[in-house]
Structures are given as C-alpha cells and as structure tokens.
C-alpha cells in the first residue's frame, strides 16, 4: 500500500473516465481488450480480437435476424405475476420490477415475425439480462404464442434460447413450462412447419431439457455453453475436473446433440438458407433458370451433371457463398 496506489491511481482513473465516456468502449469479458462500442454493435457483439460471442439482448437478436424495424412484434398474453407470492431475501415481485426497468421488457422473451429471404418466419428470442432468461409462466406463454403465430402464418419457427433454466421463484409452475413448451413446438411440427433452435450462450437446465432439444435442426453459436446440469453441480458430484470444452457448442456437436455450429457473422445466412430449403423444396417459378439465357447452354432436366446457376442461390435468399468458411470454427 503506497500513496501512489491509494491516492494517485484512483484520481488518475477518475480523470481518464471524465475525458473518455466509458460507454464508448466495452471490455471483452474473454480477452480483456477494449472494443469501440460502435464497432462492437456492427459486429453484433462478437469480439474482433478473440471472436468471443457476447450475449445479445432479445431486441438486438430480432434486429440481427430480420433487420432493424423489419419485424412485427407479436403480442404476448397477460400472465399471473408472482403466482406463489415468492420471497427470498427479496420479493420476487420486486425482482421482476427491477428486471423490467433494467431491460425495458415485460419478461425474458420477445417474439417477432418477419421474413428471411422471402420465407415467413416467427422468432422467439430470450434475453439473458432479464433474470438470467429464466423460464416462468410468461416465458412459456411467449413460446406458446410464438408457436401459434407460426402455425397461423404458415411460418417457420426459430427459437433463440439464452437461459439459466427454470425460474425458481415460480416454483412448480416453472417446471410445468417444460411440458407446455413441448406441446407448443410439437404443434408447429405437426403442422408440417420447420422448427429450428439456435442455441446461444447459455442454454441450460429445464430450457435445454424441453423445447430447446426438440428442434428439427439444432444450430449453436460458436462457444455457447449448452447443457442440462450446471458445471459447478457436476464438479461437486463427481469430484473431478471437467474435460476441456465441456458443454460448449463444439463439444455438443461432437457428441451428436447439435447439427451446425456457426459464427454469428454467418448465422442469418445459414438460417435463411435452411428455412428456404425446408419450406420451399421446389424453387419459386420466377427463380427457375431461364433456358434462353445468352451464353449458357440450356440445362437438361435429367442431366445429372447439370450446374445450378449461381444467381439461383441468390434468388433463393441465401445471398452468400456456400464456402467452407461458414462451417464451425
């Protein structure tokens, strides 16, 4: 302890803070580098230094998926607030109010409808900032509302969980959201519509053990933690060190639980291609290659070596190269 560390340094820090507004810069929680806020937003919160995927809020997530102001918000039903009158060191009702004013959300999920390419999509995005994205009645209802909207609009359903699991403060009624959300996504599947899960950091507990593991296709963001039991609980139970990369997206892919691990940069392109492939198995009429196109031989219907023109892929809304760089890193 010296005069220098006790007095001068805090003073200096205060000075620096006054000069450079802190909210212009954000520190990467993984590599510790400072990132210019504007750049970070442009990169959809992926660190340019280490590729760490920071969490996206629910609104930012839907903006990223559909484009800002390119989606319609789906109204969510009223639910009983604090059904158990739960109180720990704090009232649940107060925790809810604090989370609402912190995030500007009513609860942890936003549902939006829009287009990917030109395929209708309903998406439900979790906000980890709202009580850890935990699933109570409001979240279960949001998932159910998203499923109903997808069926009504003959749209694909995409859910982006980011959740610590069940919301304890709603007791057994939070556990009951597991069967309720399973019913919801099964309605979409039974309607013949695709249901995708995009597992984002973190997806754990009762959320993973219900709708989040029942997608037609499981996409995961690079590095996301995905699992059932918490790592601390597992470590205490087995009294061993956990293997490297345990419960990360790449680890789950190795173990057969995830189809595609994707960098956020390529996420929307991947989803656009997937919904198009499943919702429109035959290309749209106007997207068919014109045989009289100059400079190109007419494609034979049954020629196995027929090359699909590049602009067909673009017409289908993928709009990006199909290169190997899109795969997991």
């Amino acid at each position: 302890m010296s005069w220098l560390t006790d007095f001068v340094k805090p003073k200096l820090r205060a000075l620096v803070r006054a000069d450079v507004p802190e909210d212009l810069w954000e520190k990467c929680p993984n590599c510790g580098q400072m990132i210019f806020q504007k750049e970070l937003e442009q990169l959809h919160r992926v660190c340019p230094h280490c590729d760490h995927h920071m969490r996206l809020g629910a609104k930012a997530r839907l903006d990223h998926l559909f484009g800002a102001e390119q989606w319609e918000s789906i109204a969510l039903p009223e639910v009983p607030l604090d059904p158990l009158k739960f109180r720990d060191r704090q009232r649940y009702g107060d925790r809810l109010k604090a989370a609402q004013s912190k995030t500007g959300l009513k609860d942890a999920v936003l549902v939006g409808a829009g287009d990917l390419g030109d395929v209708p999509v309903v998406a439900a995005a979790f906000d980890f900032g709202f009580m850890g994205g935990s699933m109570g009645i409001a979240v279960g209802e949001a998932v159910y509302a998203a499923a109903r909207a997808a069926v009504a609009r003959k749209a694909a359903l995409i859910i982006f969980p980011s959740s610590g699991g069940a919301r304890m403060q709603e007791g057994i009624l939070s556990l009951m959201q597991m069967p309720r959300t399973v019913i919801a996504v099964d309605d979409v599947k039974n309607a013949g519509l695709p249901y995708f899960v995009v597992l984002t950091d973190p997806t754990t507990g009762g959320v993973t053990a219900s709708f989040a593991m029942l997608g037609d296709i499981h996409v995961a963001e690079t590095g996301a933690v995905i699992g059932f039991a918490g790592q601390r609980v597992i470590a205490e139970t087995i009294r061993e060190q956990l293997p490297p990369g345990f419960q990360r997206a790449e680890y789950l892919q190795e173990h057969g639980m995830v189809d595609i691990v994707v960098h956020r940069e390529h996420l929307v392109g991947t989803l656009t291609r997937l919904v198009d492939l499943l919702i429109r198995p035959v290309p749209k009429q106007e997207a068919l290659p014109a045989p009289e196109k100059p400079g190109e031989p007419a494609a034979e219907e049954d020629d196995p070596n027929r090359i699909v023109p590049v602009d067909l892929a673009a017409e289908n809304g993928a709009g990006m190269a199909n290169g190997p760089d899109e795969k997991a890193r």
Partner: peptide
Amino acid sequence: PGVGAEERGQAEAIARAI
C-alpha cells in the same frame, strides 16, 4: 448430474420423454 450423462444428452433424453 455427470459428465457422461451430459455427453449422452441428458437434456435431450428428458425432453423426448416429456
């Protein structure tokens, strides 16, 4: 809660059972 259980898809197995 165990490593093997997670690797073999504890969450998926519960979800499917429900």
